[in-house]
């Protein structure tokens, strides 16, 4: 028994040490370290990253296709994680370009950000960016966070705007991504701006089937779903209005390492942004459900 015991103890201690060692390091080092190893002719490839949800992957594929067509050597490193994770990748140079959203990026960089209207948010974003990062033109396409309920719930409780939830919230469960727990445009903001105190918050994957299923089946009553998510139309969900503009404008914008910007890259990406609208993005999101995002991106870029 004693020998077995010390083995168990030893293993557990080794585990603790290994884990605390991980905690000190950079989580991107292990998985995200897909270094650009010479894209031919000694020119270093531009590494395009993406967050871990389908739309961002699609946008990254669109950037990759458009830049590739223009003869810029590109590599992709998709599905990295949430903003909290991939921003570290931009810092350490393991990625160079990523599709971003104006409002959330501004809030990430500057917690005191106040603007909510598209142009103003974009201006505020420009001010908040550190020197080593640059945003190019933003697209008209906008993918906002939203609070969504089922048609049934909306009718039953007479919900039109987020604020209408206030008297009912103590009996309701809110579902959303884990980062909503601490993010201002999440549980804290809903409480501060609309006075919503949900009976509980259930952390689920961002924009995932899990969230949609849980909302459909009543395990959660209100959910954070992105406005371009095809599930909203498919399930007749109701997007609650946001009169206080808690969720700021979220125009799609390319975020790139300043040192990687060239006039050519700028022109190509600005052209993509000029042609990207919320409608065609939502359409593409429907296609992505049963088609490879790279193919959908190809089609869009070919039609530019």
């Amino acid at each position: 028994m004693n020998r077995r015991h010390s083995t168990v103890l030893g293993l557990a201690l080794a585990g603790v040490l290994a884990l605390s060692a991980c905690g000190g390091g950079d989580p991107l080092d292990e998985e995200g370290g897909e270094e650009a190893t010479g894209g031919g002719g000694g020119e270093e490839a531009l590494v395009i990253g993406s967050a871990n949800f389908p739309e961002n992957v699609l946008l990254a594929e669109i950037y990759a296709a458009a830049l590739g067509d223009a003869g810029v050597p590109v590599e992709t490193n998709l599905n990295i994680g949430n903003r909290e994770a991939y921003m570290l990748g931009l810092e350490d140079g393991s990625i160079d370009l990523i599709p971003e959203y104006t409002g959330n990026l501004t809030l990430y960089l500057n917690e005191a950000a106040e603007e909510t209207e598209s142009e103003a948010v974009y201006a505020e974003l420009q001010e908040s960016l550190p020197d080593n990062l640059t945003v190019l033109d933003m697209a008209e396409a906008e993918d906002k966070d939203s609070v969504v309920v089922t048609r049934e719930t909306a009718d039953e409780l007479g919900l039109v705007a987020i604020g209408d939830l206030a008297p009912h919230a103590p009996n309701l469960v809110l579902g959303g991504p884990s980062e909503w727990r601490d993010r201002y445009t999440g549980v804290p903001g809903l409480k501060e701006v609309y006075g919503l105190e949900f009976s509980s918050f259930r952390p689920l994957d961002a924009g995932s089937t899990l969230t949609v299923e849980a909302l459909l089946n009543g395990q959660i009553d209100a959910a954070n779903i992105f406005t371009t998510d095809p599930a909203i139309a498919q399930n007749d969900f109701v997007v609650l209005e946001d009169p206080e503009a808690l969720f700021a404008a979220q125009n799609v914008v390319p975020l790139i390492s300043t040192e990687k910007v060239t006039p050519q890259i700028e022109e190509v990406l600005n052209n993509v942004s000029a042609n990207l609208t919320t409608e065609n993005l939502t359409d593409m999101m429907v296609q992505v459900q049963d088609t490879d995002p790279a193919e959908v991106a190809r089609e869009f870029v070919d039609a530019l």
Binding site: V16, L19, S20, G23, N82, E84, S178, R181, D182, R183
Partner: peptide, 16 residues
């Protein structure tokens, strides 16, 4: 949640 919110102390604490 620790990972999602960049709270590595929470993450490592949870593992311990």
């Amino acid at each position: 949640d620790g990972q999602a919110n960049r709270k590595y102390d929470e993450m490592a604490g949870g593992a311990i």
